[in-house]
């Protein structure tokens, strides 16, 4: 009986690994194919003549600097915008989540309903009005023009995750601090912040993923390479042949932007799982 389960689990293990990694292996393989190979058609999984050319082109190690210039600019934008949005969103969410987990105040329901509504919000339905507003406020095609909506859309998730974490914190310590004469604010800053740090970190990772991934707003609220992030830039990719999409370079760009994701996942997998599930189902 036990052995049978073991075999089933083994098979399941292999199936899951193949499921999750096959498409990734596929784009990695594509990124090592030559442009000529895909132009003439290459239905093979593995490259016929293995080449590093695409990486060289994208990272600016060849004479063709225009592709790499645009790609590296978008990579910079992606990192900058995601990191700033993450830091600001987590800061704001931490304050709100603390209040929600710990304090009684009027308007709590309003905040929570709004957060829930935004969590379900179809981002696309904001694209039109935001485009119009950003033009008026001169935020169209600027970093803040993306950072502000990214912060907003990650707030519900961050507040949710953080308040779940905050509930786990032994609050007696805060009360003890307050008995010792600390104000609510001091108790929050000195006692709770260090305890909450792991939760904050988890929220930050999830927030970063969102901002790193976001496409609709990046596509609609930017128009030059000074602000366009990688997902949007990828739909503007142009190869040496203006009429043929450079499949292999797209695949290479895909691999490069996936590397940070894989690094984060490798380092913090336990936290991410905890964060994802704590918000929805308390395990």
């Amino acid at each position: 009986m036990r052995q049978k389960t073991g075999v089933g689990t083994w098979i399941g293990f292999v199936v899951i690994l193949v499921w999750c990694l096959l498409p990734v292996a596929w784009i990695v393989s594509l990124s090592f194919k030559s442009l000529a190979e895909t132009t003439t058609g290459s239905p093979h999984f593995l490259p016929q003549d293995f080449t590093w050319d695409n990486y060289k082109v994208l990272l600016g190690m060849t004479s063709d600097k225009s592709t790499s210039h645009d790609f590296l600019a978008s990579l910079r934008n992606s990192f900058g915008i995601s990191i700033v949005a993450t830091i600001l969103a987590v800061m704001i969410a931490t304050l709100a989540a603390y209040a929600i987990a710990r304090l009684e105040f009027r308007g709590k329901r309003l905040v929570l309903s709004l957060a829930l509504a935004i969590a379900m919000f179809p981002v696309v339905s904001l694209v039109g009005p935001l485009f119009d507003m950003w033009r008026t406020f001169h935020l169209f095609n600027t970093w803040p023009g993306l950072i502000i909506p990214y912060m907003t859309f990650t707030l519900p998730l961050a507040i949710w995750t953080l308040s779940a974490f905050f509930r786990e914190i032994p609050w007696e310590m805060e009360q003890a601090a307050q008995v010792d004469g600390a104000t609510s604010w001091q108790a929050f800053r000195k006692v709770i912040v260090p305890l909450a740090a792991p939760g904050v970190f988890t929220a930050a990772i999830l927030t970063f993923f969102f901002a790193w991934n976001e496409f609709v707003l990046a596509l609609s609220l930017t128009s030059t390479t000074t602000t366009r992030t990688v997902p949007a830039q990828m739909s503007f990719f142009v190869g040496p042949d203006p009429f043929n999409p450079p499949y292999v370079q797209l695949a290479t760009a895909s691999v490069i932007v996936t590397i940070p994701v894989i690094v984060i996942v490798l380092l913090f997998q336990r936290r991410i799982v905890a964060g994802l599930t704590s918000g929805a189902v308390k395990g």
């Binding site: 304050l95 209040a99 304090l103 105040f105 009005p129 907003t152």
Partner: peptide
């Protein structure tokens, strides 16, 4: 506590209203 709570959620609330509720009304 009421006052602190409201202060703490204010930034989140303002941001959410500004970026979603206002454009939605528009």
């Amino acid at each position: 506590e009421n006052r602190l709570g409201q202060k703490l959620v204010a930034p989140a609330l303002i941001l959410m209203v500004l970026v979603t509720a206002y454009p939605m009304l528009q």
